[in-house]
């Protein structure tokens, strides 16, 4: 199987905040953008993919995710709302509102709950079984910057290098019990684990391993850390961090933020995308870089693998760098890469 890469024909007009493949069909892709739209593409078929529909929002959209099937999506953004979008009809429903921009939204199919993280330093847990219930609000010690979950765990990476790990089952039962109809439904939940980032700089992204063993996190200072959930000293001793997405120019190291992390659903390897426009594939177990792709024309803001692991979507937008008043001019594009059979496979253990 050969591999090839193409860019979507109809790209958003402003920076891309998220790309997400559908849980079931490997060619259905959601893209959220600062241009206040969510885009739904069918990546196969037409060359350059087919834009099925756009969903307009009131403010820049910061994240999007699929729900229980390929026709349900959730979005969040600067309008401080968390929305459910029916992708067929285009109907949008506001599920909850935060007190600040909502950075992340993530759906757990195992527990049928939706978690949103906002810069108001809180998480909203939406019980989708009971649509009338007011979502539970979990206060956080800091602003959440990135969310990721496995079947059992939710990892929240926050400002001040804090990381909270919640047990999803207990979260789900908790919100089931505290179901009230009167807001605010604030629930103090002790996280399963509280950690400090093993990196010195602000955490940029977090992504959980598909095998539920641990997670990778990245910082603004060109570094990726790999850690394990298991609190035993042996497992904790295995954690490590490494430098990447750096460029040496005349003796000066230009260090880019690592904006995106995504695990490959089949091989368990992961991709990192940096402000340098590079996407690299890593084998977190063997601690090896598998490959590094040719530079994209601008900063990589998000990465997603399709559920079957055959495709990788890369959202490329100009990065927001120090000393700039605005987004630098640059390319806004979504690239879809069809991976060859073992392109993302880790090294064989010898």
């Amino acid at each position: 199987m050969s591999s090839h890469q193409f860019e979507l024909a109809q790209n958003p007009t402003d920076a891309i905040s998220a790309v997400k493949f559908a849980p079931n069909s490997p060619d259905r892709l959601l893209v959220s953008s600062w241009d206040r739209h969510v885009y739904l593409y069918k990546t196969k078929g037409e060359p350059g993919g087919e834009l099925i529909r756009k969903y307009e929002h009131r403010a820049p959209v910061l994240d999007v995710c699929f729900g229980k099937d390929d026709n349900e999506a959730f979005s969040c953004g600067l309008d401080q709302d968390v929305r459910r979008i029916d992708l067929e009809t285009g109907e949008q429903t506001v599920l909850s509102s935060h007190d600040a921009g909502v950075r992340n939204v993530i759906y757990s199919p195992e527990h049928n709950i939706l978690i949103s993280g906002s810069w108001d330093s809180s998480l909203h847990i939406h019980n989708l079984e009971n649509s009338t219930a007011v979502p539970a609000t979990i206060p956080l010690p800091s602003k959440p910057f990135s969310l990721s979950l496995t079947a059992t765990k939710l990892v929240v990476a926050m400002a001040s290098r804090a990381v909270n790990i919640y047990d999803l089952t207990s979260l789900a039962t908790m919100i089931g019990q505290s179901a009230t109809t009167t807001p605010p439904n604030i629930v103090e939940v002790e996280p399963w684990q509280r950690r400090e980032s093993s990196m010195k700089y602000m955490t940029r992204a977090v992504a959980c391993m598909p095998n539920d063993a641990g997670y990778a996190s990245s910082s603004i200072e060109g570094r990726v850390a790999v850690e394990w959930f298991d609190p035993s000293p042996e497992s904790q001793a295995r954690k490590y961090a490494f430098k990447c997405h750096r460029n040496s120019v005349e003796g000066q190291d230009i260090v880019y933020p690592v904006n995106a992390l995504a695990f490959h659903p089949i091989h368990g390897t992961f991709a990192s995308g940096g402000g340098d426009g590079v996407v690299a594939l890593w084998d977190g177990v063997a601690k090896r870089r598998i490959r590094q792709y040719q530079k994209f024309p601008a900063s990589v803001s998000c990465i997603s693998f399709s559920s079957d692991g055959r495709y990788m979507a890369v959202g490329v937008s100009p990065g927001f760098e120090d000393g700039k008043e605005d987004l630098s001019d640059g390319v806004v594009k979504v690239f879809i890469r069809e991976l060859a059979d073992n392109e993302a496979a880790g090294r064989k253990q010898k």
């Binding site: 403010a59 921009g101 810069w119 602000m202 230009i254 260090v255």
Partner: peptide, 23 residues
């Protein structure tokens, strides 16, 4: 001699972006 492309320790790039008038 290391130059961070983004060095703010308390605000993410998205937060800064969100403050732009156009957004």
């Amino acid at each position: 001699n290391v130059k961070l492309v983004y060095s703010d320790e308390s605000e993410s790039p998205e937060e800064k972006l969100a403050k732009l008038p156009k957004y």
